[in-house]
Design a protein around this nucleic acid. Structure first.
Length: 459
DNA sequence: TAGCTCGTTGGACAA
DNA sequence: TTTGTCCAACGAGCT
């Protein structure tokens, strides 16, 4: 009997690890281990999504005649115990890329036959390198090499099994109960449904609509990709198909832009693989000695969406409430914390990891280092998002702001992104007195911008 | 090797 | 209102 050890690949369609296990021997034991590190984490929304996903996967497996065994504890201990108690030959698992996962798997592989199969991206994080074998540090050349990289067998997607052998009756823990957000039902069928709905229509307008905060222009597939409810190569194949079906240049550009986002995902996976130290420090050595501001009250205002800048606050409140925000909202809020408040980007990174339903170490760290200008890529330090301009550009009527900041619901569009400019009479008229019903800006944009420019110039 | 080009996502300001 | 220019400089990556 073999074990399919499930970690971040909660799917049956195009699951290489599961497929390999079945190829090797008909009897496969699907296993998930509730790692104590996972249970200790404070990322409740992400946990709830995962637990709900495990419930669905268990049902799917049962429907096919198999089951899902849940164990709780240290993975190495649990695996070794299973191997001792049952006639297990091999363990198949999808290769994970975080430093913790790599240490864990390395240690286990020394004790038993652990067969790691790639599947977290279309290409493995170590595969796309420069000619001299060194990793790329800049996205554009990476993406060129990614596209040119031979696809091997990745173009053929593995179908889900239709029937499975029953597994022996062995003890299994309960999956913890934690209510999952109704916004992201956690199962493979839903993931595929959402992918199809995006590819049928919205992808063709993606190059423009992806920036809009007041429209659903993005695919919002990130939680599904993070937990492997969608296979990256299936997603990529389908996107290529959409590209082929495009009727005009705009539609093609939409597909290309979205495919680039998939490549970004893998670019940051590659960065994390080659530079795991990025998780604890700035990638650029020059930025490791920055003295960030200690401003706990401002940090709390940021977390709670009380900075006085509507676009920042709307996003932070949406994040706290739903666990998901638009990529542009992530950039605006991150830029505000780092550039306007001069608070260490790592504080923000940690808060995002705790709050996000799709929180992914590679993508989150890559995104924060990009915004802070401390990452591999040379981002001009003078690139500082203006929260008013960004709001006016990407939420022109203030629809998004009004949705998440009810205090501002009646404010006219002209002032929606800068309510402090409203004359007192109008503030009273619209029932939002600034400094009373809604905070005044905690920093002045012009002053904060100058301060950030000065500080970054010194580094 | 040397030289050249380029770098996801911006903003301010002048004309 | 729109458009162009500047804001630094450097190192990655390519030819």
């Amino acid at each position: 009997m073999n074990i399919w050890w499930i970690r971040r690949d909660l799917r049956l369609t195009d699951n290489q690890a599961f497929h390999e296990a079945l190829k090797y021997g008909e009897k496969v034991l699907p296993l998930f281990i509730l790692d104590k590190h996972l249970l200790k984490s404070h990322a409740e929304k992400r946990q709830a999504f995962l637990f709900s996903g495990l419930h669905s996967l268990k049902q799917d497996l049962q429907r096919l005649g198999s089951d899902l065994i849940i164990r709780k504890g240290d993975p190495e201990t649990e695996i070794l115990r299973l191997v001792e108690e049952y006639p297990i030959q091999k363990i198949f698992a999808e290769e994970d890329i975080t430093p913790y996962a790599r240490r864990r798997d390395h240690s286990i592989a020394q004790r038993i036959d652990l067969h790691l199969v790639h599947g977290i991206g279309v290409h493995p994080p170590y595969a796309v390198t420069r000619m001299d074998g060194k990793p790329y540090n800049v996205f554009t050349p990476y993406s060129r090499a990614w596209k040119a990289f031979p696809f091997l067998d990745t173009l053929s997607v593995l179908p889900a099994p239709v029937v499975l052998s029953p597994i022996p009756n062995l003890p299994s823990e309960e999956i913890p109960e934690l209510p999952n957000s109704s916004l992201f039902p956690a199962n493979e069928q839903e993931a595929i449904r959402r992918l199809n709905s995006f590819l049928d229509e919205r992808i063709f307008a993606y190059s423009d609509s992806r920036n809009r905060l007041d429209e659903e222009g993005t695919s919002a597939l990130s939680p599904y990709l993070h937990f492997g409810m969608l296979s990256p190569r299936l997603v990529y194949n389908e996107a290529i198909q959409a590209w082929k079906n495009s009727h005009d240049a705009i539609a093609r550009a939409g597909c290309e832009t979205w495919i680039n986002e998939l490549i970004w995902r893998e670019f940051y996976q590659s960065i994390l693989w080659h530079f795991p130290e990025a998780l604890s420090q700035s990638l650029k050595a020059a930025f490791r000695n920055i003295v960030w501001r200690y401003a706990p009250e401002e940090f709390i205002a940021w977390q709670e969406g009380n900075t006085g800048y509507p676009i920042v606050d709307a996003a932070m409140r949406q994040l706290a409430s739903t666990g998901w925000i638009h990529n542009r909202a992530r950039m605006i809020t991150a830029s505000f914390l780092v550039k306007h408040l001069l608070i260490n980007w790592q504080e923000g990174e940690r808060w995002f990891m705790r709050s996000l339903i799709d929180g992914d170490l590679a993508a989150n760290n890559g995104g924060w280092q990009w915004v802070a200008g401390t990452g591999t890529d040379a981002v001009p330090y003078f690139r500082i998002f203006n929260p008013v301009t960004q709001g006016e550009k990407f939420d022109p009527q203030g629809k998004y702001v009004r949705k998440w900041i009810p205090e501002l619901a009646n404010v006219p569009a002209k002032f929606i992104h800068k309510p402090w400019e409203m004359p007192t009479a109008e503030q009273q008229k619209y029932h939002v007195v600034i400094g009373q019903d809604y905070p005044a800006p905690i920093v002045d944009h012009r002053i904060a911008r100058e301060r950030a420019l000065q500080m970054y110039k010194k580094e």
